[in-house]
Nucleic acid binder design. Structure first.
Lengths: 139, 139
DNA sequence: ATAAATGCAAAGCATTTGCAACCAT
DNA sequence: ATGGTTGCAAATGCTTTGCATTTAT
């Protein structure tokens, strides 16, 4: 789940262009959009290279991936809005019993100018079962 | 993107069992896990039926789907943690310029007992371009 | 020279969909 | 009887991967 280590990384024209495309937009593009864009400069690049490099950029902290922790949807029988904790180690998702901060919606609405209906909040870290206690502070 | 309207919905044994399986666990199962579980009671049910009914349950507010707004990953060239707004109408994702609430991590850690490293917060609603102004209150 | 990175195509997976049969209303 | 629902299988779409070749070091 966490293959964050990579011996060393070579600089390639492809990765350079991908990163500059990513930095040059605020549209939170999909991999395919990046592909189409990069192709204008490197017509022979392949989608596989886009994916491989996006992953490298995310793992090395140069880009953010916007998606839920899991690669597939998970479902919750409790339809009321509540928060979740996802363990980055084992992938388990837990409910968090803490009050929903409604004030955040108003704050975001003022900051963005968009009509905010609700929000979703997920916490990430190491769960108790994986050795990450709330007060452990192992590292 | 929003096919929330459905003429009327019939009650079926399949949907009943799916909902009870969903209500009977707190593991935030995947569609496939639900499938395996429901199969113990209805051996002939198909995965397609699971997916169709999970969608109905989510659309009718009886269950929650845990996933990012989009069906595919989106990438952000800004690697610093910040919040996003996703329009439920057009699917566009916008950055929100508001301070990251670090206090939330401590609160979640206390409430959950897990070691929290960071959190992700997304707001949902109607963006300005789709007619949802911050003060509009159209409805 | 050496191993990382690429392009290409095939494969993998989660999810959706077309369709004939079925069944709740 | 009507049309929503199902089971099945094929299809779709995003993402990954195997491999021979290229290329940064």
């Amino acid at each position: 789940m966490s293959e964050t280590k990579r011996g060393f990384v070579r600089n390639t024209k492809q990765r350079e262009v991908i990163l500059s495309v990513l930095r040059g937009t605020d549209t939170h593009p999909t991999a395919d959009w990046v592909y189409q864009e990069v192709r204008k400069e490197l017509p022979n690049i392949s989608l596989g290279t886009i994916y491989r490099n996006l992953r490298i950029l995310v793992e090395s902290g140069q880009a953010l991936e916007l998606s839920f922790s899991s690669d597939c949807s998970r479902f919750d029988g409790n339809p009321e809005n509540h928060y979740h904790f996802a363990c980055t180690e084992c992938g388990n998702v837990y409910d968090i019993d803490m009050p929903v901060a409604q004030g955040l919606d108003a704050e975001a609405e003022k900051a963005s100018g968009h009509k905010v209906m609700f929000h979703r909040l997920e916490f990430y870290g190491i769960c108790q079962a994986c050795g990450g206690g709330a007060d452990g502070d192992l590292q």
